[in-house]
Structures are given as C-alpha cells and as structure tokens.
Design a protein around this nucleic acid. Structure first.
Length: 268
DNA sequence: GTTGAGCGTT
C-alpha cells in the first residue's frame, strides 16, 4: 500500500528528502520503499517520470521523517545494488519548488506570502528546465543522438520529396509554430510590445514600397479584366514566383485536381 | 526492447 507519487506531497513540514541516483528505469517507489523504510520512517517516495514517455528518469526522492534516519539510510543504502544496479543515495540539494534545502530539509517552508514581485515565470522555467535536461541527456547518449538525427534526416528527405509534388508551406509553418506552445510568453510580449513588431532587430521588412504598379495603372484595378491579368502582376511583384495554385507546368489548375491521370476514362 | 548525468509531482 504505497501510493507514492499518486498524489502531491503529503506533508513536507519536517521531512528530509534523499536523492536516489543511478537506479534502473524500471525501479519504482514500491521497490525502494522496503529498502528505505527499513532504516527509518519513510514519509513519501517520489520518482520523477518523463512526461513524454512516462518512464522513470532514473532517480527517485525518498523523504524521511527524521534527519538521523535519513543520514543512516544514506550511509547504508548508498552504493547498494538495486535491480542489478548500484544506486547512489544522498541528501537532496533542491526542494520541490527548486528551493535550496539544507541536508534534505527545506529551509524555506512554502514562501507563499512572500513578495512575488520577483516576477518569476514558473511555466517558462518549467519548459526550459525540461528542455535543458533533455538536451543534456541526448548529448550524453551518442547512439541515441545519432539515431534521432538519422531519423530526422530521413523524415526531412521524405518531407521534402513530398513538398515537390505538393505544397509544403502549411506543413512547414505548422511545424515551426508547434514548437512554441507558450501562450503565456506570447501574451506577455504582445502586451509589452507591439503586435506588429515581431522581430524588431531581425526582419525589419525593408520592403516598405507600397504598390507602385497600382498607382501607375489604376485602370487595371478599376476594370475587372480576366483573372489572367492578375497572374503577370503577381509574378512581376515576386520576381520569380510561379503561382502556387498551378502546380502543373501547363498552368492548368484543373490538372492539379486530378493527380492520377490513370483514372482518366478518356474524358480527361 | 532502448540511454546513465543528475535534483521532484496530483
């Protein structure tokens, strides 16, 4: 009956957290509980898990009720073989709130009524922290890094090939935006800065020239000529940008609708 | 089925 990790921290008023490292990714709190409970009263055991895969990260936090017991467990369980791996037990240096703790004991007990003018973004830090850890981990595992890179490259190639026959604009944009899922950051920036100034020092958009063509030939605008008249205009403005609609060299939008000419029964 | 420096959650 050890539902450790199921609910939030039960009580961390006078508890000492121990950090257990080098444990197997399959080791669970239930496996560590009997080991640590033998040396003292274990209040709670928490094993951080990856949110993406849900697997253990390889370390656990054991909370003791008394410091002496925690110290004993550190000295006794440090270097113990668990699940075929030597675990490392030591006092936690940081608390659940990333606060500095002394000998596993949290120095600051929930600074809730403290001046929060420090303006610390918990959400932003969360993501950053996760990314940092992930990056470090990937960097360490060379095989994993290569594997991922190869996979990414393969996907990129396939993706590029597809883009040749189809439009890759929406896909690319979606991917780029998918990376940024921080609405908080966006809101904060939009609040402080103009929405227009997305990149103040990167993309100044020097193309400020209005429409000299329109001004010179307002007749075109007034007279609704055939849709083809707009084609040259667009091309002229972009310089060398074919119509995204007409994928076929023939310039026939209708052809794009039927990618498989095999289906043509004779009519098309 | 997977890796191995390090510090945490309904």
């Amino acid at each position: 009956m050890s539902h450790f990790g199921r609910s939030g921290p039960p009580d961390i008023s006078d508890t000492y957290s121990l950090l257990v490292l080098n444990i197997t990714f399959r080791t669970t709190a239930d496996d560590l509980f009997p080991l640590f409970d033998k040396y003292g009263k274990v209040v709670d055991i928490f094993i951080p898990k990856d949110r993406r895969t849900g697997e253990s990260r390889g370390f656990a936090f054991v909370r003791y009720k008394y410091a002496d017991e925690a110290q004993k467990a550190v000295e006794r369980l440090d270097g113990r073989m668990v699940d075929g791996r030597e675990i490392t037990v030591q006092f936690a240096k940081y608390g659940p709130n990333a606060e500095r703790i002394h000998k596993g004991r949290i120095i600051e007990s929930m600074p809730r009524t403290r001046h929060r003018s420090r303006s610390r973004s918990p959400r932003r830090r969360y993501r950053d922290d996760y990314r940092d850890r992930d990056y470090r981990r990937r960097s360490r595992s060379r095989s994993y890094d290569r594997y991922e890179r190869d996979r990414y490259r393969g996907r990129d190639r396939d993706y590029r090939r597809r883009s040749r026959s189809r439009s890759a604009s929406p896909d690319y944009k979606s991917r780029g935006r998918g990376r940024y899922d921080d609405d908080d950051d966006r809101r904060s920036r939009s609040r402080s800065r103009s929405v227009d100034s997305r990149s103040p020092a990167h993309s100044p958009s020097p193309r400020r020239s209005p429409s000299p063509r329109r001004s010179m030939s307002p007749e075109r605008s007034a007279s609704p000529r055939s849709p083809r008249g707009e084609s040259p205009d667009n091309r002229s403005r972009d310089g060398r940008s074919p119509s995204p609609r007409s994928v076929s060299p023939r310039g026939r939008p209708d052809a794009s609708r039927s990618p498989s000419p095999r289906n043509s029964n004779g009519d098309e």
